[in-house]
């Protein structure tokens, strides 16, 4: 089994999948870092102060002004109100929500990347694990070996898991190292407020607790990893069902983008919460943002994702072991 996994890893490396991901991340993170740096600079110029309290207070005032506009939709208003309550909570407890530094950057980068960027990277790994064997014709060579089919597939699946972990390692290390060049490497022990819950459109602070930022990051990475695994499993399944990398990636991409669009509209369509694409923002639960459909919780989203993931895995194995290959 270990040899099989080793073999699959070798293929991934030879096909330069890992390298491609490292390069993409290494190219994009400096861009984000620069953008973030520019934003911080303009804010400072405008306010004429580096004091975060003044900046945060100004943000609160701006948010309040947006609330007083009569043209914003009810859902959006709720979101803003929750964010407002949160900002006020930070200010009242004298905690800076965004100490500039490598860990803060990585934290917000993961928040942003969890719905689209990281799933895309996962797809680069997972989408052609099986289908490339079909298109290259190597599947026959592989299956003529005296090994059970399910073992071959399992080795591919496990390789996928490891590759996803490695990818997250690369992403978090690169984003910390590169952004640290600009923002410095401090702030690992900075307190982060977590445990905000949203009930009936109101922010509840009764379960709030403080975590050092590195603990928060670790939890966040765990959740990101889970999301990536589910996306990986589904791409893996499509790769088997469609036997074509392009089609598999296309379907997956369309679903993800549809999910991103739906997230903004779903609050009136309640059963949309059972779609996996709407449950990808797991990190929002840590941060205490309002979920796309009211009443969604971390447990709920994890269950939905698990069900989808397990179903995908089961389908993959059933189809792969039963299918005629010729």
């Amino acid at each position: 089994m270990i040899k099989l996994i080793y073999n699959e890893m070798l293929k991934l490396v030879r096909k330069k999948r890992i390298l491609v991901i490292i390069l993409i991340v290494a190219a994009l993170i400096p861009l984000f870092t620069y953008a973030q740096y520019k934003v911080a600079q303009t804010v400072e110029e405008k306010l004429g102060t580096t004091d975060w309290r003044a900046t945060l207070q100004q943000q609160i005032i701006d948010t309040q002004n947006r609330l007083s506009s009569s043209r914003i939709s009810d859902e959006w208003r709720k979101q803003i109100e929750i964010r407002l309550a949160q900002q006020q909570y930070y200010l009242d407890h004298d905690i800076n929500p965004a100490v500039p530094g490598a860990p803060s950057f990585t934290r917000s980068f993961l928040d942003q990347a969890i719905t689209l960027f990281l799933p895309l990277m996962v797809m680069v790994i997972a989408a052609d694990l099986v289908s490339s064997e079909f298109s290259g014709g190597t599947i026959k060579l592989l299956l003529t070996r005296p090994i059970n089919r399910w073992k071959i597939l399992l080795s591919k699946y496990i390789t996928m898991i490891f590759a996803v972990s490695f990818m997250l390692l690369v992403v978090s290390v690169l984003s910390s190292v590169i952004s640290g060049l600009v923002f410095g490497y401090g702030g690992w022990t900075m307190p982060v407020i977590t445990g905000f819950t949203v009930e009936g459109g109101e922010l509840v602070t009764s379960q709030v607790s403080l975590l050092p930022q590195w603990e928060y990051l670790l939890m966040e990475l765990g959740l990101v990893w889970f999301v990536c695994l589910v996306i990986g499993t589904l791409s893996f399944m499509l790769s088997i069902l469609l036997r074509s990398t392009a089609a598999g990636m296309g379907v997956m991409l369309a679903t993800l983008i549809a999910g991103a669009i739906l997230t903004n509209m779903a609050s009136s369509w309640e059963s949309a919460k059972y779609l996996f694409m709407l449950n990808l923002q797991l990190t929002d639960y840590l941060a205490g943002m309002a979920p796309p459909v009211e009443g969604m919780t971390l447990g709920f989203s994890l269950s939905v994702l698990s069900v989808w993931g397990l179903a995908g895995l089961l389908t993959s194995f059933l189809v792969f072991t039963k299918r005629d290959v010729y």
């Binding site: 590759a163 972990s165 490695f166 966040e220 990893w225 971390l298």
Partner: peptide, 29 residues
């Protein structure tokens, strides 16, 4: 050798991530 190292790093980090996930679950659920 490179692949072996890559594999062991991946396995190690998988465990770390698993730890992070279960920690998040524990404290939230």
């Amino acid at each position: 050798k490179g692949i072996s190292i890559l594999l062991s790093i991946s396995i190690l980090f998988t465990l770390v991530l698993l730890g992070g996930l279960s920690w998040a679950l524990k404290s939230y659920l």
